[in-house]
Amino acid sequence: MFRVVEGEINVAAMISSAQRPDSGAISTFIGTTRVDESDGASVEYLEYEAYRPMADEKLAEVGAEIRGKWDVRHVAITHRLGKVAPGEASVAIVVASPRRGPAFEASRYAIERIKEIVPIWKREVWSDGYVWVGSQIGTRGAK
């Protein structure tokens, strides 16, 4: 249920796996590639890399934290690596809970924690260079 994958994320399959009779709410968060624009350039794609298996373990840790905080009956997180084109999903989080409140809160918590503790890095590849997000190091602006 906690996976780091190289190819497209099958969000539909993740959601259908979360459907269960004890839960009245499924919350789904999908992070997608946004095309930012600045200085006459634009983002062409994002590229992700991970430290494995630590990244897999930390995703599972996020899941365990969620189960400790809310009454959730199903938690699945998938993060994609490699190139992710505009509009495509880089991360999907699916949480099922008896009620909507915990489902919403837990999925929000999951994406924030992923951005804090999971060793995955995003490189924005622009039409005029690239930037490692978080480090702000790259070839853009080095002109």
Binding site: K115, W121, S135
Partner: peptide, 8 residues
């Protein structure tokens, strides 16, 4: 060596 993580 882990730079600031930036998944999501």
């Amino acid at each position: 060596f882990l730079p600031p993580v930036s998944g999501g």
